[in-house]
Design a protein around this nucleic acid. Sequence first.
DNA 1: CAAATGCATTAACCTAGATTAAGAAATAAC
DNA 2: GTTATTTCTTAATCTAGGTTAATGCATTTG
Lengths: 156, 156
Amino acid sequence: MKTIEIKKGSIIQRKGDLNTKIYRVEKGMLRSFSIDNKGKEHIFMFAPEGWIVADGADVNLPAELYIDAIEDSTIHVFEKELTHRTLESKPLLNRISVLQKRIIMLMSSSAIERYEHFKETYPHILQRVPQKMIASYLGITPEALSKVKGDKLREK
Amino acid sequence: MKTIEIKKGSIIQRKGDLNTKIYRVEKGMLRSFSIDNKGKEHIFMFAPEGWIVADGADVNLPAELYIDAIEDSTIHVFEKELTHRTLESKPLLNRISVLQKRIIMLMSSSAIERYEHFKETYPHILQRVPQKMIASYLGITPEALSKVKGDKLREK
DNA sequence: CAAATGCATTAACCTAGATTAAGAAATAAC
DNA sequence: GTTATTTCTTAATCTAGGTTAATGCATTTG
């Protein structure tokens, strides 16, 4: 295990890199994201203090996700290889549960519904990251999020 | 472990049921799906012979997904409780990898791109299930899938 | 076999969200 | 504190995909 301190904006993993690392956030916040063929970013996950981020792609294949710091951060870096032997199933099952819910949400809820759900589920993250990143996580543009939030307010 | 034979169309798990079972398909095909607040189905997964289906939601919470047979099927039913102790991390990690890719796809690819990807990834399933179910899996309507396929052909 | 149901396709119209652009407000940098 | 850079909002326009509806096939069912 290695501990590193990184500045906001530092990229610690790129798509195509070896996918052998797991990151545990001690301080600050990381995010993982993909970049599509039009150059657009799609945030896959936010990881504040205490959270673990890793590219879930197969260890033997190149990384699919970028991972960077969105705040100055202190990170513990582990090798997947070493941790995988002792891995408990509970956190993995929990992760699967979260991903399943995310897929269902993406398929069946509107932008504003996904936003409301995010707000309830991750209120602490909502306050800490720019709204355009929330939009990216939700799968919409910043303009669209701004609009649906405004509509929501007005209709009350 | 219990083995059951079920007819096409039989529902073996509903949203809200106890979420304690895992199903292994010996013959035929199952699918899991959710129903949104407008009554629309969204297929989460197809499971042909040899595959395992289960609702990934927390075991202690009610099931989120429906599971039914889309062909006459023979199924082995296991209790999650019993299997979870001996669960290896490899298949779980693989599952996480698949779900991650699905989320990225839903956020960053068009309907036709998702269709092409499905076709390459699950050609055997494509041939066996009605196109409207593929559409449901992709997160679009049957009409939209029919249209983009037609457009694709014509533009060549 | 006939009738009924389910499935795929096409087309007209509609809408959520994308795109583009401009300005206001907030944050960061000097 | 002033300037520069991000971020957020609003508005006009555009588009992928949704909705509704009609038609033709294919598959079940009685």
